[in-house]
Design a binder for these strands. Structure first.
Lengths: 349, 349
DNA sequence: TTGTACGCGTTATCAG
DNA sequence: CTGATAACGCGTACAA
């Protein structure tokens, strides 16, 4: 069934080898011959079989996209950017989404399913175990990490230090001293995750402001709204007197807002909340946030991967800038009202 | 390079044919032989080459997922459910996302890239042109439509009539008569899109309530927040006196809320708003909504597709139920306060 | 139940 | 610049 390369060859009056060369745009074909082949292919509505092509060439024109679930804004935004870039370059995208359990763990990823299937792999927001990294390496294809990744690999990420700096300095500038955080529990690779970089940077900024470190002021969520809500509940239980919350993602921050509202606490009257991401609904909800360009990180990661596939040398550590967008969810700590005289007095979202 | 099927055969002391049969779990292999093969394969860390396997068998164990962009909640939720189901069945997912332009149009989809690449196709929320449907058919693989699809195809969808019935009856029950709608402009297949089904059903319910049809009370968005906001602006420009808004997706409804707030209008004091979907943030924002199970629709579509691939007869039209969740964004029309005496008086989200 | 041998549709090598 | 032909690695009739 189906029309094959030799049908085209026969019709164009050339060999299959020439058809293959002409269709792939190789330079050693006379222009007139190429046109003849192109016409014959079009007339027969010919399209090469990807399996046969892969088998013979060893290339697949396919990229594996390993990502944590779309329930997280960052992941789906990165996927959007990466998919678009890869498709524009003629690559297909094989999607592997992984669900994390509530405690931050997940089932181990079986990389062997990708063997011989992809020309490269993009890993989004999933810290991999050493074992997983090793089997990934054994695939023998380029790998790019987006969002979180070991320092010796090609990676694209948010400037996490700047992230925490902007957030903490903003809160400190408003007079807050009882500042709690909602980060992320991650089973693997903790030192190189975005969450741990943010935690480290936050600790430094707090110290710099003369605020003593207190581990009990740090809780962990799973980057979902529900997880953020639960983490906020645990914090408020332990520290009813906290006045500010630095949350590592907008979605977790939304969950925290729900919890605060549920407890009858006013935002920002009683508690200021700042998130990270730049979620589309941040404006409507009035959430102050450190925003980043996630789609751009996807595009960038895809571009790097494509360059590696064509054998180019690439920058190994691309860092994306962040910026602060102040909305209604943060305000001066009690007793510091003067500082915020010019701010919108509107209350909870 | 790499270990092949004959390495395994040699090690297990059998032929390559037996290795192939044993590894695929075919019944005609003696159990003892199978174990020997399995052990040899494991020891050599063997995995069959997908390209070679596809080339020889004609099967790919891959599903094509055609979807409109993840910017829409429905799409990403369906993808989540479908991906999980397909992976659990041992199928890979090839992701093709398509961006719609603001006017509801998009670049034509080139289905030929899927030829010989997939065993089936899942189409999510993209109305296809006749031409696209035809080339899709020529792929010769089963196709399932989720969210929107022609009546003669296997499809999974929301009960759109119930959707509009719940929404309109809710608003009518609150005493509203100037009810505007934000639907979706779709370039192809308009008669069979979810939006047109909802529009038809809404018109019927309004008529039933004695409210005359007025096309100028219907606007179109692109299912994004920004599109919803713009559509709301156009409606309010034309009909400053409208008191209720039935929006075909929560995200567009969020955009409408932004526009209303921007104009200093109170929700639900001046205008009631009801959306559709069951977006995670509906609760925090206080949006009344007709909720549906999008993840379930993804799972269902994937299951149907898998059944079709194995040659089973399947239900051709699966309809998912919807239900109404009332929150703060809807209230009695002015002059009807008595009806809502028991409702939360809270104002704009 | 197992083995043999051919075919799947390209690409790449090497001559010409 | 073009053609002949050998891989590529596995599935599957057919034979045993």
């Amino acid at each position: 069934m189906g029309v094959g390369i030799d049908d085209v060859a026969r019709r164009a009056g050339v060999s299959t080898a020439t058809v293959s060369r002409a269709l792939r745009g190789l330079p050693e074909v006379r222009e007139e011959t190429r046109q003849r082949v192109l016409r014959a292919a079009a007339e027969l509505n010919y399209a090469p079989s990807p399996s046969a092509s892969s088998l013979a060439s060893g290339r697949t024109r396919t990229i594996g996209l390993l990502t944590a679930s779309f329930s997280r804004w960052f992941n789906r935004s990165v996927v959007e950017g990466a998919e678009r870039t890869l498709r524009a370059a003629g690559f297909d995208v094989l999607l592997h989404a992984f669900d994390f359990l509530a405690d931050g763990t997940r089932a181990p990823i079986d990389m062997t399913t990708l063997r011989q299937r992809v020309d490269g792999v993009l890993v989004l927001g999933i810290p991999l175990s050493d074992d997983e990294r090793e089997t990934l390496d054994r695939l023998g294809v380029p790998v790019v990490f987006v969002g979180t990744g070991p320092p010796d690999r090609v990676r694209v990420r948010t400037d996490d230090a700047a992230c925490s700096r902007l957030a903490i300095d903003h809160l400190v500038g408003l007079g807050h001293t009882r500042i709690a955080q909602i980060g992320a529990a991650l089973p693997h690779d903790e030192r190189w995750s975005a969450a741990s970089r943010r935690a480290d940077a936050a600790a430094r900024r707090l110290e710099r402001a003369g605020i003593p470190a207190d581990p009990s002021l740090v809780e962990h969520g799973d980057y979902t709204q529900a997880g953020g809500r639960e983490a906020a509940a645990r914090l408020l239980e332990r520290h009813p007197d906290l006045t500010a919350l630095y949350v590592y993602s907008d979605e977790m921050a939304f969950g925290a807002l729900e919890e605060l509202r549920g407890r009858g606490l006013d935002v920002p009257g009683d508690v200021s909340v700042i998130g990270v991401d730049g979620h589309e609904l941040g404006d409507l909800i009035g959430l102050t946030s450190v925003v980043q360009d996630a789609v751009g990180q996807g595009e960038s990661g895809a571009t790097l991967l494509l360059e590696m596939i064509t054998g180019q040398a690439v920058a190994s550590d691309v860092r994306f800038p962040v910026s602060l967008v102040v909305r209604r969810s943060t305000a001066a700590a009690r007793g510091q009202e003067a500082l915020s005289a010019d701010r919108d007095p509107a209350v909870t979202p």
